[in-house]
Write a protein that binds this DNA or RNA. Structure first.
Lengths: 187, 187
DNA sequence: TTTTGTTATGCAAGTTTTTGCATAATAGGC
DNA sequence: GCCTATTATGCAAAAACTTGCATAACAAAA
């Protein structure tokens, strides 16, 4: 959908290769936009053909050659155009919730294990976001000002993960209640 | 991805037509799984061909004819199999955050308007989820027990929307700070 | 020294999802 | 009497995304 525009934005702030962009998706923007490397390369090709990007092949000695992409004026114009039109609200397709919805058809143990797996992932994500936030607060005011907007998206990630983990606790309590006699003696 | 399984689950709890399912996606499950009617019909066709669903054509006088789908034993088995295997964590692709990330390239007014649109949608969703929750709490204990698992997914929706709106307030404060001289005199 | 990881790019095939179009009957509001 | 909404289904084309495969060089760890 707007992988196109996510790429335009990333290249606007700093030119780079497909591999660069892919890493930026994995690290920085991964919590609000995901893309496989194949798709990034394909999209770069399409955007070049559309005239929104230009690239220079860059031969390297110790590393494989790469293509350095940057925005063309047309690409910049397209970015501004896109920023001016409304984006439609996000739709959620969450398989975990589908599974939980049908939870009555499987065992509480199975659900607990599933939740544990997801909790581990979300905790790790939250930790990494909080660490990025700490770094941000350590920056000089000038740089913080320049990163104000990306910081707001970081906040979305942090609040979102915290809320998710809070919910996970509710779920754990609810799943414990299903098997009250599972622990032998008890506190 | 698991539209297949979302459909199996919906039909497990109650058989119905494609149109029924589409409405259930829009109303009940809409906050964690979205599907267009075309995709639902297509998927029902595929699931029938795979032997997981069976249907009876049902002629109606006042309304167009419809097909009533229900799970086959093979469909039930597939559902149980799917419930036993881990689902992978959800990935987020959120165009609003992409836009906000690039917010420095557009006007605060534009961003504020965009946020207002999204806030209205999220508030409406939250209201409707809270109303469903009130209904749930009004049910007799027996029915609440039967709906325990779907209720957990409802909680996810509620906590998620509340967290989103909380974040939106942070964003509004941050956007106000960009144009401190925009209001003429004072408070 | 073999294996694993990182850098770097991409094609091909398949699946999933969206968008556009099409039909058809009835009910209700203006 | 006309317009709009609701019920009900679906095809076709395109766009978006995933999965599998392929290559290639170097660096570091086992």
């Amino acid at each position: 959908m707007s992988l196109k525009h996510a790429i335009l934005i990333l290249l606007e702030s700093e030119p780079g290769s497909g591999y660069d962009l892919f890493k930026r998706f994995k690290d920085g923007l991964g919590y609000f936009w995901n893309a496989k490397h194949q798709q990034v390369y394909l999209e770069l090709k399409k955007l070049s053909e559309a005239g929104w990007l230009a690239f220079e092949a860059q031969t390297q000695d110790t590393r494989p050659d790469k293509k350095n992409y940057r925005l063309t004026p047309a690409g910049h114009a397209e970015l501004l155009r896109w920023l001016g039109e409304p984006v439609q609200p996000n739709t959620i397709n969450d398989a975990l919730l589908v599974k939980l919805y049908a939870g009555a058809h499987t065992s509480p143990d199975n659900l607990r294990e599933e939740m544990q797996r997801h909790i581990a992932v979300h905790r790790k994500t939250l930790d990494s976001l909080l660490s990025i936030e700490r770094d941000y607060h350590g920056l000089p005011a000038e740089q913080r000002q320049a990163l104000r907007m990306p910081y707001l998206t970081l906040r979305r990630g942090i609040l979102g993960e915290q809320s998710w983990l809070q919910w996970a606790e509710e779920v754990e309590h609810a799943l414990q209640d299903t098997t009250p006699a599972s622990t032998p003696a008890g506190k």
